[in-house]
Design a protein around this nucleic acid. Sequence first.
DNA 1: TCGACTGCCACTTTTGAACCGA
DNA 2: ATCGGTTCAAAAGTGGCAGTCG
Length: 437
Amino acid sequence: MYHPRELYPSLGTGYRLGPPQPGADSSFPPALAEGYRYPDLDTPKLDCFLSGIEAAPRTLAAPPPLPPLPPALGTEPPPPSAPEGLHSLPGVSLSLENRELWKEFNSVGTEMIITKAGRRMFPACRVSVTGLDPEARYLFLLDVVPVDGARYRWQGRRWEPSGKAEPRLPDRVYIHPDSPATGAHWMRQPVSFHRVKLTNSTLDPHGHLILHSMHKYQPRIHLVRAAQLCSQHWGGVASFRFPETTFISVTAYQNPRITQLKIAANPFAKGFRENGRNCKRERDARVKRKLRGPEPAATAAYGSGDAPGGPCDSTLGGDVRESDPEQAPVPGEAARAPAPPCGGPSAEAYLLHPAAFHGAPSHLPTRNPSFPEAPDSGRPAPYSAAFLELQPGPAGSGYPAAAPPASFASHFLQGGPIPLPYPGPGPYLDVGSKPMY
DNA sequence: TCGACTGCCACTTTTGAACCGA
DNA sequence: ATCGGTTCAAAAGTGGCAGTCG
Protein backbone atom coordinates (compact mmCIF):
# COMPACT_ATOMS: atom_id res chain seq x y z
CA MET A 1 0.00 0.00 0.00
CA TYR A 2 1.29 3.35 -0.89
CA HIS A 3 1.05 6.86 0.11
CA PRO A 4 0.58 9.59 -2.46
CA ARG A 5 4.04 10.91 -1.85
CA GLU A 6 5.43 7.58 -2.80
CA LEU A 7 3.20 7.44 -5.78
CA TYR A 8 4.17 10.88 -6.93
CA PRO A 9 7.89 11.09 -6.30
CA SER A 10 8.14 14.06 -8.57
CA LEU A 11 6.37 16.08 -5.93
CA GLY A 12 9.27 15.57 -3.62
CA THR A 13 9.69 13.54 -0.52
CA GLY A 14 11.23 16.07 1.79
CA TYR A 15 9.05 17.11 4.59
CA ARG A 16 9.20 20.76 5.25
CA LEU A 17 9.67 21.82 8.79
CA GLY A 18 6.60 22.55 10.75
CA PRO A 19 6.46 24.15 14.15
CA PRO A 20 6.00 22.44 17.41
CA GLN A 21 2.74 23.28 19.01
CA PRO A 22 2.69 26.48 20.94
CA GLY A 23 0.79 26.97 24.10
CA ALA A 24 0.14 24.40 26.73
CA ASP A 25 2.94 22.10 25.82
CA SER A 26 5.18 23.11 28.66
CA SER A 27 7.66 20.34 28.41
CA PHE A 28 8.64 20.99 24.85
CA PRO A 29 11.23 23.63 24.21
CA PRO A 30 10.08 26.68 22.34
CA ALA A 31 13.26 26.81 20.30
CA LEU A 32 11.65 25.45 17.19
CA ALA A 33 8.35 27.09 17.62
CA GLU A 34 8.88 30.21 15.61
CA GLY A 35 9.15 31.03 12.01
CA TYR A 36 7.25 28.11 10.63
CA ARG A 37 3.95 27.60 9.02
CA TYR A 38 1.97 24.45 8.81
CA PRO A 39 2.80 23.24 5.36
CA ASP A 40 1.00 19.99 5.77
CA LEU A 41 -2.24 21.73 6.14
CA ASP A 42 -1.53 23.86 3.15
CA THR A 43 -0.68 20.93 0.98
CA PRO A 44 -1.97 17.83 2.63
CA LYS A 45 -0.92 14.47 1.40
CA LEU A 46 -4.36 14.04 0.05
CA ASP A 47 -4.05 16.70 -2.52
CA CYS A 48 -1.20 14.83 -4.08
CA PHE A 49 -3.29 11.78 -3.92
CA LEU A 50 -6.36 13.37 -5.29
CA SER A 51 -4.37 14.59 -8.17
CA GLY A 52 -4.56 11.07 -9.38
CA ILE A 53 -7.97 11.87 -10.65
CA GLU A 54 -7.90 15.58 -10.91
CA ALA A 55 -5.91 17.54 -13.41
CA ALA A 56 -3.91 19.80 -11.16
CA PRO A 57 -1.29 17.81 -9.35
CA ARG A 58 -0.41 20.06 -6.45
CA THR A 59 -3.47 21.91 -5.46
CA LEU A 60 -6.95 20.93 -4.67
CA ALA A 61 -8.82 21.46 -7.84
CA ALA A 62 -12.24 22.94 -7.60
CA PRO A 63 -14.66 20.21 -6.81
CA PRO A 64 -17.66 19.61 -8.95
CA PRO A 65 -20.71 21.60 -7.97
CA LEU A 66 -22.19 20.46 -4.73
CA PRO A 67 -25.84 20.19 -4.01
CA PRO A 68 -26.93 23.02 -1.77
CA LEU A 69 -26.34 22.37 1.87
CA PRO A 70 -29.10 22.84 4.35
CA PRO A 71 -28.92 26.41 5.54
CA ALA A 72 -28.42 25.38 9.10
CA LEU A 73 -25.36 23.41 8.20
CA GLY A 74 -23.75 25.05 5.29
CA THR A 75 -23.08 28.62 6.15
CA GLU A 76 -21.95 28.99 9.69
CA PRO A 77 -18.29 29.69 10.28
CA PRO A 78 -16.35 27.24 12.40
CA PRO A 79 -16.51 27.98 16.10
CA PRO A 80 -13.61 29.88 17.62
CA SER A 81 -12.21 26.73 19.14
CA ALA A 82 -12.29 24.85 15.89
CA PRO A 83 -9.01 23.37 14.82
CA GLU A 84 -7.04 24.70 11.97
CA GLY A 85 -8.25 23.12 8.84
CA LEU A 86 -8.00 23.13 5.14
CA HIS A 87 -11.46 23.42 3.80
CA SER A 88 -13.10 22.80 0.55
CA LEU A 89 -16.10 21.46 2.42
CA PRO A 90 -17.87 24.60 3.49
CA GLY A 91 -19.62 24.54 6.81
CA VAL A 92 -17.99 21.33 7.95
CA SER A 93 -16.38 21.43 11.34
CA LEU A 94 -14.81 18.90 13.62
CA SER A 95 -14.48 18.97 17.36
CA LEU A 96 -12.26 16.80 19.48
CA GLU A 97 -14.51 14.84 21.78
CA ASN A 98 -11.93 13.98 24.41
CA ARG A 99 -10.20 17.32 24.27
CA GLU A 100 -9.82 17.63 28.02
CA LEU A 101 -7.98 14.35 28.25
CA TRP A 102 -5.72 15.32 25.40
CA LYS A 103 -5.05 18.66 27.03
CA GLU A 104 -4.10 16.96 30.23
CA PHE A 105 -1.61 14.77 28.43
CA ASN A 106 -0.38 17.62 26.31
CA SER A 107 0.32 19.74 29.36
CA VAL A 108 2.81 17.10 30.44
CA GLY A 109 4.09 16.23 26.98
CA THR A 110 2.23 13.36 25.39
CA GLU A 111 4.20 10.24 24.60
CA MET A 112 2.92 7.38 22.48
CA ILE A 113 4.43 3.93 22.70
CA ILE A 114 5.31 2.40 19.36
CA THR A 115 6.10 -1.28 19.07
CA LYS A 116 6.99 -3.70 16.36
CA ALA A 117 3.57 -5.32 16.55
CA GLY A 118 1.78 -1.99 16.69
CA ARG A 119 0.40 -0.13 19.66
CA ARG A 120 -2.83 1.76 19.91
CA MET A 121 -2.86 5.44 20.62
CA PHE A 122 -4.04 6.56 24.01
CA PRO A 123 -5.80 8.88 24.17
CA ALA A 124 -7.36 8.06 20.86
CA CYS A 125 -8.58 10.64 18.42
CA ARG A 126 -12.31 10.87 18.76
CA VAL A 127 -14.13 13.61 16.96
CA SER A 128 -17.62 14.72 16.26
CA VAL A 129 -18.44 16.28 12.96
CA THR A 130 -21.12 18.71 11.92
CA GLY A 131 -22.07 20.41 8.72
CA LEU A 132 -22.03 17.40 6.44
CA ASP A 133 -24.59 16.84 3.78
CA PRO A 134 -26.62 14.05 5.37
CA GLU A 135 -27.16 12.40 2.01
CA ALA A 136 -23.65 12.63 0.62
CA ARG A 137 -20.98 10.06 1.24
CA TYR A 138 -17.71 10.85 2.94
CA LEU A 139 -14.48 9.15 3.81
CA PHE A 140 -12.82 9.69 7.17
CA LEU A 141 -9.05 9.37 7.21
CA LEU A 142 -6.36 9.78 9.82
CA ASP A 143 -2.66 10.17 9.32
CA VAL A 144 0.26 11.20 11.48
CA VAL A 145 2.88 13.61 10.24
CA PRO A 146 6.12 14.87 11.71
CA VAL A 147 5.86 18.20 13.42
CA ASP A 148 9.43 19.27 12.76
CA GLY A 149 12.76 18.04 11.52
CA ALA A 150 14.22 17.22 14.89
CA ARG A 151 14.86 14.11 16.87
CA TYR A 152 14.12 14.44 20.55
CA ARG A 153 15.67 13.21 23.71
CA TRP A 154 14.35 13.06 27.24
CA GLN A 155 16.72 14.97 29.45
CA GLY A 156 15.41 13.93 32.80
CA ARG A 157 12.88 16.72 33.09
CA ARG A 158 11.94 17.68 29.58
CA TRP A 159 12.17 16.80 25.93
CA GLU A 160 14.93 18.53 24.02
CA PRO A 161 15.94 18.35 20.38
CA SER A 162 18.96 16.17 19.86
CA GLY A 163 19.82 16.30 16.23
CA LYS A 164 18.21 15.88 12.92
CA ALA A 165 15.20 13.73 12.33
CA GLU A 166 15.54 10.35 10.70
CA PRO A 167 14.66 10.16 7.03
CA ARG A 168 10.97 10.19 6.41
CA LEU A 169 9.25 6.83 6.47
CA PRO A 170 6.54 5.76 4.08
CA ASP A 171 3.44 7.71 4.93
CA ARG A 172 0.43 5.69 5.69
CA VAL A 173 -3.14 6.70 6.13
CA TYR A 174 -5.71 5.02 8.30
CA ILE A 175 -9.10 4.93 6.68
CA HIS A 176 -11.98 4.72 9.05
CA PRO A 177 -13.60 1.40 8.23
CA ASP A 178 -17.04 2.90 7.95
CA SER A 179 -15.84 4.86 4.96
CA PRO A 180 -17.53 5.76 2.82
CA ALA A 181 -20.66 6.53 4.77
CA THR A 182 -23.28 9.21 4.56
CA GLY A 183 -22.96 12.50 6.34
CA ALA A 184 -25.91 11.52 8.49
CA HIS A 185 -24.03 8.45 9.55
CA TRP A 186 -20.89 10.34 10.51
CA MET A 187 -22.85 13.00 12.35
CA ARG A 188 -24.96 10.52 14.26
CA GLN A 189 -22.24 9.79 16.79
CA PRO A 190 -18.62 10.57 17.53
CA VAL A 191 -16.12 9.05 15.16
CA SER A 192 -13.44 7.14 16.99
CA PHE A 193 -10.03 6.25 15.64
CA HIS A 194 -9.07 4.27 18.70
CA ARG A 195 -8.04 1.23 16.71
CA VAL A 196 -5.27 3.05 14.92
CA LYS A 197 -1.97 1.40 15.68
CA LEU A 198 1.50 2.88 15.63
CA THR A 199 4.59 0.88 14.82
CA ASN A 200 8.30 1.45 14.42
CA SER A 201 8.63 -1.47 12.07
CA THR A 202 9.47 -0.05 8.67
CA LEU A 203 8.48 -3.33 7.06
CA ASP A 204 5.22 -3.57 8.91
CA PRO A 205 2.85 -5.69 6.84
CA HIS A 206 -0.27 -4.91 8.83
CA GLY A 207 -0.88 -1.41 7.63
CA HIS A 208 -0.11 0.28 10.93
CA LEU A 209 1.14 3.83 10.84
CA ILE A 210 4.94 3.78 10.78
CA LEU A 211 6.76 6.27 12.97
CA HIS A 212 10.29 6.91 14.13
CA SER A 213 10.91 6.71 17.81
CA MET A 214 11.86 9.91 19.61
CA HIS A 215 10.22 12.11 17.02
CA LYS A 216 7.39 14.54 17.44
CA TYR A 217 4.22 13.87 15.49
CA GLN A 218 0.84 15.38 14.85
CA PRO A 219 -2.26 13.39 13.97
CA ARG A 220 -4.49 14.84 11.29
CA ILE A 221 -7.98 13.95 10.28
CA HIS A 222 -9.21 14.29 6.74
CA LEU A 223 -12.72 14.25 5.43
CA VAL A 224 -13.18 13.54 1.78
CA ARG A 225 -16.50 13.81 0.08
CA ALA A 226 -17.10 11.19 -2.52
CA ALA A 227 -19.82 12.67 -4.64
CA GLN A 228 -21.18 9.27 -5.53
CA LEU A 229 -20.05 5.85 -4.72
CA CYS A 230 -19.28 5.10 -8.32
CA SER A 231 -18.36 8.54 -9.48
CA GLN A 232 -15.08 9.65 -10.93
CA HIS A 233 -15.40 12.91 -9.04
CA TRP A 234 -14.69 13.89 -5.53
CA GLY A 235 -16.63 16.59 -3.83
CA GLY A 236 -14.12 18.34 -1.64
CA VAL A 237 -11.78 17.66 1.20
CA ALA A 238 -11.27 19.09 4.66
CA SER A 239 -8.24 18.49 6.85
CA PHE A 240 -8.17 19.06 10.57
CA ARG A 241 -5.43 19.19 13.10
CA PHE A 242 -5.81 19.54 16.83
CA PRO A 243 -2.72 21.09 18.42
CA GLU A 244 -3.27 19.30 21.71
CA THR A 245 -2.86 15.91 20.02
CA THR A 246 0.82 16.39 19.30
CA PHE A 247 2.94 13.62 20.77
CA ILE A 248 6.42 12.18 20.84
CA SER A 249 6.76 8.57 19.79
CA VAL A 250 8.77 6.38 22.15
CA THR A 251 9.50 2.71 22.63
CA ALA A 252 9.36 3.13 26.39
CA TYR A 253 7.87 5.93 28.40
CA GLN A 254 10.40 8.53 29.40
CA ASN A 255 8.37 10.94 31.47
CA PRO A 256 7.03 9.26 34.61
CA ARG A 257 4.20 11.76 34.74
CA ILE A 258 2.97 10.48 31.40
CA THR A 259 3.16 6.96 32.72
CA GLN A 260 1.03 7.93 35.66
CA LEU A 261 -1.48 9.66 33.45
CA LYS A 262 -1.75 6.68 31.14
CA ILE A 263 -2.18 4.29 34.02
CA ALA A 264 -4.79 6.47 35.57
CA ALA A 265 -6.72 7.08 32.38
CA ASN A 266 -6.41 3.89 30.38
CA PRO A 267 -8.68 1.07 31.51
CA PHE A 268 -6.32 -1.53 30.15
CA ALA A 269 -3.67 -0.26 32.54
CA LYS A 270 -5.97 -0.55 35.50
CA GLY A 271 -3.83 -3.25 36.97
CA PHE A 272 -0.96 -0.82 37.34
CA ARG A 273 -2.91 1.65 39.40
CA GLU A 274 -2.23 2.06 43.07
CA ASN A 275 -3.77 -0.93 44.87
CA GLY A 276 -3.99 -2.68 41.55
CA ARG A 277 -2.80 -6.24 41.46
CA ASN A 278 0.00 -5.28 39.14
CA CYS A 279 1.14 -2.23 41.04
CA LYS A 280 4.72 -2.09 42.17
CA ARG A 281 3.98 -3.21 45.68
CA GLU A 282 2.13 -6.27 44.48
CA ARG A 283 4.76 -7.07 41.90
CA ASP A 284 7.48 -6.91 44.50
CA ALA A 285 5.43 -9.12 46.76
CA ARG A 286 5.02 -11.60 43.92
CA VAL A 287 8.73 -11.68 43.31
CA LYS A 288 9.36 -12.36 46.97
CA ARG A 289 6.78 -15.13 47.03
CA LYS A 290 8.34 -16.61 43.94
CA LEU A 291 11.74 -16.62 45.55
CA ARG A 292 10.32 -18.28 48.64
CA GLY A 293 8.62 -21.01 46.70
CA PRO A 294 5.56 -21.90 44.64
CA GLU A 295 2.44 -19.93 45.33
CA PRO A 296 -0.69 -21.55 46.69
CA ALA A 297 -3.24 -22.38 44.07
CA ALA A 298 -5.59 -19.62 45.14
CA THR A 299 -4.25 -16.92 47.35
CA ALA A 300 -6.40 -14.68 49.40
CA ALA A 301 -4.56 -11.73 47.96
CA TYR A 302 -5.75 -12.56 44.49
CA GLY A 303 -9.01 -14.19 45.34
CA SER A 304 -12.23 -12.33 45.53
CA GLY A 305 -9.54 -9.79 45.47
CA ASP A 306 -11.06 -6.43 45.32
CA ALA A 307 -11.21 -4.53 48.50
CA PRO A 308 -14.46 -2.78 49.24
CA GLY A 309 -14.81 0.07 46.87
CA GLY A 310 -12.76 -1.62 44.19
CA PRO A 311 -9.05 -2.07 43.88
CA CYS A 312 -8.30 0.67 41.46
CA ASP A 313 -10.63 3.46 42.19
CA SER A 314 -8.42 5.16 44.67
CA THR A 315 -6.34 6.80 41.99
CA LEU A 316 -9.34 7.98 40.12
CA GLY A 317 -11.21 9.85 42.75
CA GLY A 318 -13.09 12.73 41.21
CA ASP A 319 -11.17 12.18 38.06
CA VAL A 320 -12.66 13.47 34.89
CA ARG A 321 -11.58 10.24 33.31
CA GLU A 322 -14.28 8.33 35.04
CA SER A 323 -16.82 10.33 33.19
CA ASP A 324 -14.83 10.34 30.04
CA PRO A 325 -16.43 8.11 27.48
CA GLU A 326 -12.99 6.92 26.57
CA GLN A 327 -13.05 4.97 29.78
CA ALA A 328 -16.63 4.77 30.81
CA PRO A 329 -18.65 2.81 28.33
CA VAL A 330 -21.79 4.55 27.39
CA PRO A 331 -24.90 2.61 28.27
CA GLY A 332 -25.79 0.41 25.41
CA GLU A 333 -22.28 0.10 24.17
CA ALA A 334 -22.08 -3.43 25.46
CA ALA A 335 -24.89 -4.31 23.17
CA ARG A 336 -23.29 -2.94 20.07
CA ALA A 337 -22.50 -5.14 17.17
CA PRO A 338 -19.55 -7.33 17.93
CA ALA A 339 -16.29 -6.25 16.48
CA PRO A 340 -13.68 -8.57 15.12
CA PRO A 341 -10.70 -9.00 17.37
CA CYS A 342 -7.79 -6.75 16.82
CA GLY A 343 -4.53 -7.86 15.43
CA GLY A 344 -5.17 -9.73 12.24
CA PRO A 345 -8.72 -8.73 11.50
CA SER A 346 -8.17 -5.18 12.60
CA ALA A 347 -5.85 -4.72 9.70
CA GLU A 348 -8.88 -4.88 7.51
CA ALA A 349 -9.48 -1.34 8.45
CA TYR A 350 -6.43 -0.30 6.55
CA LEU A 351 -6.90 -2.58 3.69
CA LEU A 352 -10.51 -2.66 2.87
CA HIS A 353 -10.18 0.46 0.90
CA PRO A 354 -7.23 2.12 -0.74
CA ALA A 355 -4.74 -0.59 -0.18
CA ALA A 356 -2.40 1.33 -2.36
CA PHE A 357 -1.90 3.92 0.32
CA HIS A 358 0.60 1.75 2.02
CA GLY A 359 3.96 0.40 1.16
CA ALA A 360 3.62 -3.24 0.37
CA PRO A 361 6.69 -5.29 1.06
CA SER A 362 7.63 -7.04 -2.09
CA HIS A 363 7.49 -10.45 -0.49
CA LEU A 364 3.82 -10.17 0.28
CA PRO A 365 1.16 -11.45 -2.03
CA THR A 366 0.04 -8.96 -4.56
CA ARG A 367 -3.37 -8.29 -5.84
CA ASN A 368 -4.97 -6.98 -8.90
CA PRO A 369 -5.91 -3.31 -8.63
CA SER A 370 -9.46 -4.11 -9.42
CA PHE A 371 -9.87 -5.28 -5.83
CA PRO A 372 -11.81 -8.42 -6.47
CA GLU A 373 -14.10 -9.38 -3.71
CA ALA A 374 -13.69 -12.52 -1.76
CA PRO A 375 -15.64 -14.91 -3.90
CA ASP A 376 -18.06 -16.52 -1.56
CA SER A 377 -17.96 -14.98 1.86
CA GLY A 378 -19.17 -11.54 1.04
CA ARG A 379 -16.42 -10.36 3.34
CA PRO A 380 -13.28 -8.64 2.23
CA ALA A 381 -10.47 -10.81 1.11
CA PRO A 382 -7.78 -11.42 3.71
CA TYR A 383 -5.72 -8.34 4.19
CA SER A 384 -2.63 -9.96 2.91
CA ALA A 385 -4.38 -10.18 -0.41
CA ALA A 386 -5.53 -6.61 -0.41
CA PHE A 387 -2.33 -5.05 -1.56
CA LEU A 388 -2.29 -3.52 -4.91
CA GLU A 389 -0.13 -5.06 -7.49
CA LEU A 390 2.42 -2.35 -8.00
CA GLN A 391 5.51 -2.33 -10.08
CA PRO A 392 8.66 -1.94 -8.08
CA GLY A 393 10.33 1.38 -8.36
CA PRO A 394 13.80 2.07 -9.57
CA ALA A 395 16.67 0.17 -8.05
CA GLY A 396 14.32 -2.39 -6.63
CA SER A 397 13.06 0.01 -4.02
CA GLY A 398 9.80 -1.79 -3.77
CA TYR A 399 7.96 1.41 -4.42
CA PRO A 400 6.32 2.52 -7.58
CA ALA A 401 8.15 4.91 -9.79
CA ALA A 402 5.09 6.49 -11.27
CA ALA A 403 1.56 7.31 -10.43
CA PRO A 404 -0.79 4.38 -10.41
CA PRO A 405 -3.56 4.08 -12.90
CA ALA A 406 -6.46 6.35 -12.26
CA SER A 407 -8.53 3.43 -11.18
CA PHE A 408 -6.60 3.33 -7.96
CA ALA A 409 -7.46 6.83 -7.00
CA SER A 410 -10.99 6.52 -8.12
CA HIS A 411 -11.26 3.37 -6.13
CA PHE A 412 -10.29 5.27 -3.05
CA LEU A 413 -12.82 7.97 -3.66
CA GLN A 414 -15.51 5.61 -4.67
CA GLY A 415 -15.11 3.36 -1.74
CA GLY A 416 -14.36 0.42 -3.92
CA PRO A 417 -16.25 -2.74 -4.58
CA ILE A 418 -15.17 -4.41 -1.39
CA PRO A 419 -17.94 -4.85 1.15
CA LEU A 420 -17.77 -2.15 3.71
CA PRO A 421 -18.24 -2.46 7.42
CA TYR A 422 -21.50 -1.53 8.88
CA PRO A 423 -21.57 0.43 12.10
CA GLY A 424 -22.97 -1.14 15.16
CA PRO A 425 -25.61 0.51 17.28
CA GLY A 426 -23.05 1.61 19.86
CA PRO A 427 -22.11 5.16 20.61
CA TYR A 428 -18.95 5.11 18.58
CA LEU A 429 -18.19 4.23 15.07
CA ASP A 430 -15.92 1.35 15.40
CA VAL A 431 -13.37 -0.46 13.36
CA GLY A 432 -15.00 -3.72 14.05
CA SER A 433 -18.34 -3.96 12.47
CA LYS A 434 -20.42 -5.93 10.10
CA PRO A 435 -20.54 -5.69 6.38
CA MET A 436 -22.77 -2.98 5.11
CA TYR A 437 -23.89 -4.86 2.09
C1' DT B 1 29.26 2.91 28.65
C1' DC B 2 24.83 4.24 27.76
C1' DG B 3 20.59 5.00 25.57
C1' DA B 4 17.23 2.78 22.75
C1' DC B 5 14.90 -1.25 21.77
C1' DT B 6 12.79 -6.00 22.41
C1' DG B 7 10.47 -9.76 24.51
C1' DC B 8 8.17 -11.47 28.21
C1' DC B 9 5.22 -11.03 32.31
C1' DA B 10 0.97 -10.47 34.88
C1' DC B 11 -2.71 -8.00 34.84
C1' DT B 12 -7.57 -5.95 32.84
C1' DT B 13 -10.86 -5.40 29.27
C1' DT B 14 -13.15 -6.91 25.25
C1' DT B 15 -15.22 -10.20 22.46
C1' DG B 16 -17.79 -14.06 20.98
C1' DA B 17 -19.39 -18.64 21.63
C1' DA B 18 -21.98 -21.74 24.44
C1' DC B 19 -25.59 -22.50 27.38
C1' DC B 20 -30.05 -21.97 29.56
C1' DG B 21 -34.75 -20.65 30.26
C1' DA B 22 -38.88 -18.23 28.82
C1' DA C 1 -37.58 -22.12 16.69
C1' DT C 2 -36.48 -17.75 18.53
C1' DC C 3 -34.97 -14.42 21.69
C1' DG C 4 -32.62 -12.49 25.64
C1' DG C 5 -29.62 -12.98 29.48
C1' DT C 6 -25.60 -15.14 31.72
C1' DT C 7 -21.20 -17.39 31.93
C1' DC C 8 -16.76 -18.48 30.45
C1' DA C 9 -12.56 -18.71 27.82
C1' DA C 10 -9.66 -16.70 24.46
C1' DA C 11 -7.82 -12.70 22.43
C1' DA C 12 -6.19 -8.22 22.79
C1' DG C 13 -4.22 -4.27 25.19
C1' DT C 14 -1.55 -2.30 29.18
C1' DG C 15 2.99 -0.72 31.61
C1' DG C 16 7.07 -2.70 33.95
C1' DC C 17 11.33 -4.79 33.72
C1' DA C 18 15.38 -7.32 32.50
C1' DG C 19 18.19 -8.35 28.82
C1' DT C 20 20.16 -7.18 24.29
C1' DC C 21 22.08 -4.36 20.83
C1' DG C 22 24.48 -0.72 18.49
